[in-house]
Nucleic acid binder design. Structure first.
Lengths: 134, 134
DNA sequence: ATTATAATGATAATCATTATCAAAGAGGTA
DNA sequence: TACCTCTTTGATAATGATTATCATTATAAT
């Protein structure tokens, strides 16, 4: 039987309140301020658990360790190859619809059961675009 | 100045001939048969180099270490959550077109410069679908 | 052939993550 | 409340993947 833990609670809460996509370590450092006895293993354990429950999503960035996202509303990620920031992008309903259509077509054509899709974009974010370009 | 090396040649060649998406280690083990003096660091070094040149692509799988793909023709990846296999899926021209359209729209709306996109599907492959379901 | 420098292989070092395990906490039940 | 069982925790060792170091070898230009 799954039991309550204060640690799991604050990890989820923090992740849902943050607007960025922290690594396990940065979450750990942050939470240690309000719970100094917290251990890094507990953070990893709970992040894994929350991912399995589908409350949290793991992001495999191109650069650096895995990141975690407490926002599970459908959206895609853009990673800036210059500053490394990952920004959330919400597709319009019509765009979302096109994607799920393609997913359906592919599932049929390949005879697979596709239950999730992820779209990663890479390039230069607004800031870095102007900085790098001139 | 960049210099030729036999090692880099066989790494690229092997990757382009293989139809799977090997990890650095499995590539190393395989190539060691034809070149026993090959070192694992050389494999990592050259894979990184080839990725930077854009001749090879790195795949961050949900499970396990990074994989490499010698096929750079536009395609997307499907990872089976049961057997872990990664299969290539080629979108139809019209599907590809819809995606690049969305990419363009997003780039404008977000004021970013998006130069690459990756679509990642997850679920059950043909084999595992029938195995698990029935 | 000589020389400059890039690439290699062995291996140490690092980084991220997972495993282990004794102690503490949660959630029953008597 | 006291007790029991099982889960979770924190500390830390262990592991796995990748990168750094460095002496040696190979490449390519002169």
């Amino acid at each position: 039987m799954k039991k309550y833990s204060k640690q799991r609670e604050i990890i989820l809460e923090s992740l849902q309140n943050r607007k960025d996509h922290p690594t396990a370590e940065s979450l750990y450092i942050d939470l240690k301020r309000q719970m100094p006895e917290l251990g890094i293993a507990t953070v990893y354990r709970n992040l894994t658990e929350l991912c399995e429950q589908g409350i949290v999503k793991k992001i495999k960035a191109k650069v650096g360790p895995d990141r975690y996202d407490g926002n599970i509303k459908p959206h895609i990620h853009f990673e800036c190859k210059n500053c490394g920031e990952i920004i959330d992008i919400y597709l319009k309903e019509e765009q979302e619809h096109k994607i799920s259509n393609i997913k359906k077509q592919v599932s049929e054509a390949e005879e697979i059961q596709c239950d999730s899709s992820e779209i990663y974009l890479t390039g230069l974010c607004q800031k870095c675009k102007t900085q790098v370009t001139g």
